[in-house]
Design a protein around this nucleic acid. Structure first.
Length: 211
DNA sequence: CACCAGGCAAGTA
DNA sequence: TACTTGCATGGT
């Protein structure tokens, strides 16, 4: 195998198979979920998404029309609800001002889209990249707490490694392919949830033993 | 009861 | 620049 980054993907794919990931049915839903899941379990986010769907509020136009205080109450189970309500409003406003609608906003180049997202208050690197990859379908690699933990355990990064540094590790050693980045990140999440838990540093049964 | 979960920005020195 | 703190819910 030519490098450990590819080796890890090969092993994970052989062990877990394709993940067909990001739990979300539309680009808008994925974008919303990306903000709601900041430092929050997907279980909590899912409660919010499903309740919004039941109420017919799961669309750009519907959520945009809600007053800030009402939006905050609607997303309450996802935690940090006052902060996230403001972030969602800011995101919507930036998209309207920049492109008018979500489809046009997502039609920008990968780099431009990422930069436009990062300029929005409340959208940091992970959220921007999640939206860019899973929402817009463009090839960026998403780095999250799981990615960091797994790479650290396998001594592929330093403890103080920054976001871009970790991202460049993947971008530099893999072909630029949105489908590949999508699956790879999903596989890392799967691995972390099943084997590489914060409280289980020994990683018993981990399919990456010896990599 | 303590700790965790697919972050981010603002405040402090 | 480098570190610390606030934000908040639901599950285990």
């Amino acid at each position: 195998m030519s490098n450990r980054i590819e080796e890890i993907h090969t092993r994970l794919f052989a062990h877990f198979g394709p993940q067909h990931w990001w739990p979300g049915e539309t680009p808008f839903e994925i974008m919303l979920g990306a903000v709601l899941t900041q430092n929050t379990s997907w279980r909590n986010v899912s409660m919010v998404i499903e309740s919004l769907r039941r109420e017919g509020l799961l669309s750009f136009d519907a959520l945009e029309a809600l007053p800030l205080e009402v939006l905050a109450e609607k997303i309450r189970p996802s935690g940090y609800y006052n902060q996230k309500a403001k972030r969602i409003k800011g995101l919507f406003a930036a998209i309207r001002a920049e492109s008018g609608d979500l489809e046009a906003f997502f039609a920008q180049s990968t780099h431009t889209l990422r930069e436009k997202l990062l300029a929005i208050k409340g959208i940091g690197p992970e959220t921007a990249d999640s939206i860019t990859l899973y929402g817009a379908g463009k090839p960026v690699f998403v780095v999250d707490a799981y990615t960091y933990r797994i790479l650290l355990r396998h001594d592929l990064i330093a403890e103080d490694a920054g976001y871009e540094e970790i991202q460049d590790l993947f971008l530099g050693k893999l072909p630029t392919d949105a489908q590949l980045f999508n699956e790879y990140h999903a596989l890392l999440v799967r691995l972390a949830k099943e084997y590489c838990k914060k409280t289980n540093p020994l990683c018993d049964g981990c399919p990456l033993q010896g990599v």
